[in-house]
Design a protein around this nucleic acid. Structure first.
Lengths: 116, 116
DNA sequence: CATCTATGCATAGCAGTGCAAGGTATCTTT
DNA sequence: AAAGATACCTTGCACTGCTATGCATAGATG
């Protein structure tokens, strides 16, 4: 499924922060998790995700640490900060507002009526 | 409430199309409807909405007609096209995917776990 | 009547955004 | 040794769009 760019962009931050809120993770694992949780319907490219992660770090919402796995692989682990959790709460509220509005419009029968 | 620009941008099209699906409307009325349906939490500026409407018309998703109200006011009424309805269905599906993913992440306790 | 406010629409300069594409590194498999 | 998988980096090129400003006009106010 091809999700519109602006929707992908708008949703990336809350998705990443939500994931990290459950536990630290690294780039590739994040991409895999997003694919899984969306039933293979959201597929991020690494070229897209890493700038997002860097931005989030610059903003103080996440923090990174290099680590080496048993396999010898070096990975950059990200964890959410307190600021990041606060930001996530704000974003969630905004998404609720918008989703709520869309939900009402999907059902309402009268909203579009206009007067002369 | 200050909603992030990218979220406003991503949600504008489905909101407009949903509104018009219930009945034709014009700029100012659309802005008022959105404010109402969101409980005053989404406030669009006219400068933002009109380019959106023009874009939607260029894409064939809506069609416009000039009309004069009893008051003498000229208004540009917009109505959704068949294409527009199809597009709305597509967008709704995409929003569902993203909202679903966000919902799972808000509750899930295991998704962020990574392996070494 | 003049002025201000509310209603209605238009638009581009300025500001900004960001990912596709290409690259590096290194472990694992063929 | 070469190819594939894993892991991360980064910017040029492509693109996006709304803030600010402007026009028009009906209605309200002094």
């Amino acid at each position: 499924m091809d999700i519109q760019k602006d929707l992908v962009a708008a949703s990336a931050t809350p998705i990443v922060l939500s994931l990290l809120r459950h536990g630290e993770s690294y780039g590739y694992a994040i991409i895999r998790s997003v694919r899984e949780v969306s039933g293979d319907r959201i597929e991020w490219t690494d070229g897209m995700l890493y700038p997002v992660l860097h931005r989030l770090e610059a903003a103080g919402f996440v923090r990174s640490t290099w680590r080496t796995a048993d396999s010898g692989r070096r990975r950059k682990y990200y964890r959410i900060t307190k600021q990041g959790e606060a930001e996530l709460a704000r974003l969630r509220e905004q998404w609720d507002v918008v989703h709520d509005a869309l939900g009402r419009l999907a059902q309402s029968r009268k909203t579009g009526a206009d007067d002369v």
